[in-house]
Design a protein around this nucleic acid. Sequence first.
DNA 1: GTGGATGCAAACTCTTTGCAGACGG
DNA 2: CCGTCTGCAAAGAGTTTGCATCCAC
Lengths: 150, 150
Amino acid sequence: MRSSTTRIEQEQHVQETLRRFGLKWTRPRSLIFRVLFQSDNHLSAEEIYEALAKEEPTIAIATVYRTVRLFEDLGLLAGVDLGDGMERYEWIRSQHHHHHLVCSQCQAIEEVPADILKELKETIFREAGFRLDEREVTFTGICSKCILKE
Amino acid sequence: MRSSTTRIEQEQHVQETLRRFGLKWTRPRSLIFRVLFQSDNHLSAEEIYEALAKEEPTIAIATVYRTVRLFEDLGLLAGVDLGDGMERYEWIRSQHHHHHLVCSQCQAIEEVPADILKELKETIFREAGFRLDEREVTFTGICSKCILKE
DNA sequence: GTGGATGCAAACTCTTTGCAGACGG
DNA sequence: CCGTCTGCAAAGAGTTTGCATCCAC
């Protein structure tokens, strides 16, 4: 598995993946891909929809939900639960998932590389026989900026 | 802060807490308390409602939601997000929160004492300056039983 | 041309809220 | 009694689905 970095490369990868399953590369799919790929944030369906509304006013939010689900099933993006009542989505740029720290004061989201959890993973496997998967986990707490403000 | 263990003790503690805030000890609240206290599982509002339907058919699900929110605000129970699309609730028996491992194959839920995360907490604070709080976290993976079945 | 994809609207799930009446302290 | 609490029904958010039409391949 490769991890393309440019938009063109990723776009081709998406097209290829769709083709492999007999699925189609359509305008809504291409637009949704671009919004997700370009964004640094974790977007909700509503946010994707709004970002598209200007250049594609006829797009339906149902299409956003369907597309996002499809991309997730194809392993192209990850659904993230940041605990704010709606699913958010993040384009997968590499195999290295990362976990999230959500500041309960300023709502900032930081990312933690997965390997920080490696030790925890081993401890849990050793003590409970439970093998953690790569799914993202959201921790809450207080970020460094807000600690200084205390 | 004490950590009562018997139902009678806990019930008195709840009554006391309510009184302290000028709130009332009512039949719905007592029933909901009992269901939550007796259950070993993490119940959803719907499940609490169903457990009550037999002895109190007129109870409203809105009351369950309101009561559960109240108990949570009073620090008597914890809302848990197990990633199945609805909030679940767990009576707090002691100060020691625990985290959850959800098996993605058999849906079993195991509990992990919070202190297993102590090291992780320190690493994250050292490397990112982020101070984790005590909120519960849900990990997914494969439990020991399902590993054996592989 | 044909099966997959889309837009639209309606349905669905979980949760919250407004309100009049009931009830606990 | 007074203010809280309740049941009921309706509203609300987020998400899914049915269906006729449309469009990529």
